[in-house]
Design a protein around this nucleic acid. Structure first.
Length: 598
DNA sequence: GGGCCGAGCCAC
DNA sequence: AAACGTGGCTCGGCCC
């Protein structure tokens, strides 16, 4: 259908031909790189092709026939810069299958995310080629490589496959040129450098993965299962007199149990019990006096644990490594935070026995390191509020101090209740929280909560001013930035939009939150990059394995673990101090056999 | 039987 | 249910 310009490249099938490639790319300051593997998972994938493009030449290397190790020094060196789309994939594939660790990357996928953060998530190579070159790319050719019957897996490539492989590398140059100009013009070079430096750290985390104590995990699930079944039985006994229910099986038989996971069925049961509920959400159930509501909440808590964190996570353990290798999405959130999936290790319950099943490799220990109150420290930094700054400089308990000021009682007279209320406000601020939602958490009326907020802002005038300013600037400028320079754009709704006010206030809240959450993400990423570089430069038997927003988990051989823990702490503090100048940075470190905070 | 979506709920 | 920010996973339920 579409017209395609002839793709010019050299197909490299012998070691002798590779010498020519090497000679040519050694002179370059920038090259484009792409790889084709037979699977997404670097442990399962066979490295099929390595494509390298210079400004006016391109090479497609048949990795089945050619030993690519002569390219190792060039690919690992700082020069030339390697332009790559989704460099984490190529880094991992080359590391696992060829022992090559790519150095000095420019990732066009991450660059696009940085440039369009908040207004687009279209970052595929297909999209970029169209956007920057007006060129159409057919991705179905590449997908062929994952088919075990594809002759390409035995080194028999069609011309079309090779053409596409070459053009994938060739188009990167023009995308890079344009993206680079934009990044510079929009003050986003620092953010781009940070993201690119973070790529190897992230790839290494995924490659190393986490070891799980399966026996312990299973026995934990089975304990939870017993408790869930007990509650389910109690509930079914309680409501059996209401049967038969409306649901029927394939043979027309009426069921005598209710599916507690079906909101529809539950509403029916509550109706028979004389409770007309709008839905079965947690909020509604909490306000429903009938004892069934309470039991149901208990059932749900167990059910959630079992279904979300039970066997399904064990199924993701790699048969090759025996470990979990989740997909860390470096720019998963518009604030710059990571997201994580397959499985999402950022939502493992904090206190229910699952985390202690993440264990160190025999002969190693785990280091769990997290920033202490990093978001509130960022709030102090950006607002320059004297009371906030003082609290952190003097290492005081900020929440108690807040309570003391708000309620005008001496510090030692602050009780748990008052501290909790102060803490709720301190954290709520960062979400743009209002009196209604605050009242629900702390059990006061909306009016009382409103007064509390007024008192709070009277004590912390500069916090109030900063929040108001940044909320307004989100709307005026259509975007906000972190201390690291990262930007999030907002698409403002049309004035005629039916939900105009609602959407605008949501943007204000997002505008208030982004500099805080995003600066925290900046700091964690600097830390990951620093730590990765130290491990690499010092050739330490130590590995990053996990990160959860303000937390970094690593493992190190037992005999060096204490040194490595100190190193991690130093690097995390260094990263924090890069962006926080007015407030001290504090890191809590814990060394143990499993994933746990001290 | 797969895709999509909302409800509900886990993390920070 | 929410005038509390950022995500992902599982389920029921609906659609094609």
């Amino acid at each position: 259908m579409e017209t395609e310009t002839e793709v010019k490249y050299n197909f490299i099938q012998t070691n002798q031909d590779l010498t020519r490639v090497l000679g040519e790319i050694e002179k370059e300051s920038i090259i484009s790189v792409d790889t084709e593997g037979s699977a997404y998972n670097p442990y399962e994938a066979k490295l099929l092709l390595l494509q390298i493009a210079t400004k006016d030449n391109a090479f497609v290397i048949d990795c089945g026939q050619v030993d690519i190790s002569p390219l190792k020094p060039v690919l690992e060196a700082n020069r030339p810069i390697k332009i790559i789309q989704n460099a984490k994939y190529d880094y991992s594939l080359l590391k696992v299958q060829a022992g090559i660790t790519l150095g000095n990357l420019f990732d066009t996928m991450l660059a696009e995310r940085i440039l369009t953060c908040g207004i687009s998530r279209e970052i595929s190579l297909k999209t970029l080629a169209e956007k920057y070159l007006g060129q159409k790319i057919d991705k179905s050719i590449r997908e062929d490589f994952s088919n075990p019957r594809n002759p390409a897996l035995r080194g028999k490539f069609t011309k079309v496959q090779l053409d596409y492989a070459a053009s994938d590398a060739i188009v990167l140059r023009e995308i890079f040129e344009q993206q680079y100009r934009q990044l510079r013009g929009e003050g986003l070079i620092e953010t781009a450098k940070l993201e690119f430096a973070t790529v190897p750290a992230v790839a290494e985390m995924e490659i190393r993965g986490s070891l799980i104590d399966k026996e312990k995990w299973r026995s934990h699930i089975s304990e939870l299962g017993k408790k869930r079944d007990q509650i389910n039985k109690e509930i079914q006994d309680d409501i059996r007199h209401l049967a038969p229910y409306t649901q029927v099986d394939l043979f027309g038989k009426e069921s005598d149990t209710v599916n507690l996971d079906s909101p529809l069925q539950l509403l029916g049961v509550f109706k028979k019990l004389g409770e007309n509920l709008p839905n079965t959400s947690e909020a509604i159930l909490q306000k429903t006096k009938h004892p069934l509501a309470k039991k149901l909440l208990e059932y749900r808590a167990y059910e959630k644990m079992i279904t979300s964190f039970g066997e399904s996570i064990l199924e993701k353990i790699s048969p090759i490594t025996g470990r979990l290798h989740p997909d860390f999405l470096q720019l998963g959130a518009d604030t710059g935070r990571f997201a994580c999936n397959n499985p999402n290790l950022q939502q493992i319950p904090a206190d229910s026995g699952f985390r202690s099943c993440f264990i160190a490799t025999p002969g190693y220990k785990l280091i769990t390191a997290d920033y202490s109150q990093i978001e509130l420290r960022i709030m102090a930094e950006v607002s320059e509020d004297p009371a906030f700054l003082k609290a952190f400089k003097e290492d005081l308990d900020l929440h108690s101090l807040t309570a003391s000021q708000m309620f005008r009682v001496p510090l030692e007279k602050v009780n748990k209740d008052k501290r909790f209320q102060a803490k709720s406000i301190n954290f709520g601020l960062m979400y743009g929280r209002g009196p209604v939602s605050l009242s629900n958490q702390i059990g006061l009326s909306v009016d009382e909560s409103k007064k509390l907020l007024d008192v709070y802002f009277a004590s912390y005038k500069k916090v109030k001013r900063w929040l108001d300013d940044v909320g307004r600037s989100a709307i005026r400028n259509g975007g906000v930035r972190t201390l690291g320079g990262r930007r999030r754009l907002f698409s403002l709704p049309d004035r005629s939009h039916p939900d105009y006010d609602k959407l605008m206030s949501a943007i204000e809240r997002q505008g208030k939150n982004m500099p805080i959450q995003g600066t925290s993400a900046d700091i964690t990423k600097y830390a990951l990059a620093y730590i990765h570089n130290e491990f690499k430069d010092r050739k330490l038997d130590a590995y990053l394995i996990h990160t959860v927003h303000d937390e970094i988990v690593a493992e190190a051989r037992e005999d060096i673990v204490d040194q490595v823990a100190v190193l991690i702490e130093e690097m995390m503090v260094k990263a924090g101090e890069k962006l926080l100048k007015k407030v001290p940075v504090k890191v809590d470190i814990h060394v143990s056999n499993c994933w746990e905070k001290g």
